[in-house]
Design a protein around this nucleic acid. Sequence first.
DNA 1: GATCTTGTTGTCAAATTGACTATAAGGTAG
DNA 2: CTACCTTATAGTCAATTTGACAACAAGATC
Lengths: 230, 230
Amino acid sequence: MNQNFTNDIIDALSIDCLIFGFQDSKLEILLVKHAEGIIKGSWALPGGWVMYNENIDDAAYRILNELTGVHHLYLEQLHAFGDVERYPGKRVITIAYIALTKPENYQLIPGFTASDAKWVDVKKIRELPYDHKLILNAGLENLKRKVRYEPIGFNLLPEKFTLLQLQELYEAILDIKLDKPNFRRKIMNMNLLISCNEKQKGVSHRAAKLYRFDKEVYDNLTKKGFNFEL
Amino acid sequence: MNQNFTNDIIDALSIDCLIFGFQDSKLEILLVKHAEGIIKGSWALPGGWVMYNENIDDAAYRILNELTGVHHLYLEQLHAFGDVERYPGKRVITIAYIALTKPENYQLIPGFTASDAKWVDVKKIRELPYDHKLILNAGLENLKRKVRYEPIGFNLLPEKFTLLQLQELYEAILDIKLDKPNFRRKIMNMNLLISCNEKQKGVSHRAAKLYRFDKEVYDNLTKKGFNFEL
DNA sequence: GATCTTGTTGTCAAATTGACTATAAGGTAG
DNA sequence: CTACCTTATAGTCAATTTGACAACAAGATC
């Protein structure tokens, strides 16, 4: 009883993963190169079939890991996409999952139906197969909304980071410029950051203080929500 | 080619609808009594199978209408529920949809697999079959989050309403008490309401002014979002 | 006409915001 | 070694928004 939805009962349910990373002040997503199937050779979101005896959340973790080697991150369901003609020839409904993570934490290991995997700057993506561009846009919208009422950054930034890095993360997601002193004031008033009493190294200008998130405050704000008008 | 996902290829994809209404200052949802199947006689969310050649969004409208007679409302996808054991005996994934509407606009007409339909006070619901209680809770959380960054009320309140009615709607959804003068000030500053230059009738106290939503401002705020800390 | 209920307006101190200015702390180029 | 980059960080200030109320208004009912 480990049949795939592909084979026996269903050919209709898949998962696609939208994994966001933040590198060099840019927002990126993880793509894989398909090693087989109707879009062999194309770069697309990591995705695959849900198995018959597998919770969909579990399927998302398994699929992502099989295709890219990425593991241990917090995947959240984004949306189900189920238009009749979204997949050529068959009726396939897909459930998209979204996660935020640190690219530098992983060595990408393509596997299963993926011959390669890489991080791509979100702004440079023009098209994607199937309705994956639609899924990406939905994910970006979701992120933009989320940053306004939940803290983010914990999964995207290194353990120790500067205020400017955090600001640039917000700027990349919201696609706007922010005022530095005001951003600093607002974020500091939330009591979310703890100073590491350390400074940045290897920069050719005044080094900034390093901060880390206060896990307790962070989780609390994630649950209760807050407001971050910018 | 009008096969059901139930019969031929899939027995796995269903839709469940969470329809919220607001009546007598109370938040309610629409339930149907199952006329057949394994939970015959029980009250549950209106739901059914997605057909092979049908977009999932379309399926949601069709199913809701077939079961309850309710039509012409704005259904939005909430979440897909796909735990292996959520449905007895079979592997069924369901996609939940959510909508806000005015109960008094409809005469409920149970049909298809529903022998009856009614509105039920959300606070009085103790249990529901399958994982429908889980779905209801997810919907309530979604609503609580939504009212903080989007205007609501347009679909839930009568065309003309008093400020107190609007406030009670927020109170019902958020399950908190609000300060009347401050609520009034905050909502009025949004330029969202237009005075009807009319007064409430048939109340045994001072009659309140009636307002209606400014559709243009409303739609604009829905798109751009705003902040309503309360 | 007193009183009850809800509507509506107003007050005020405290907190927050947005738009800045000013100063500090490095590194680097001449 | 000094002038001058660049970025960090602190602070100012008027305008706006908030939260917590008080006060008054308008009917209906006792």
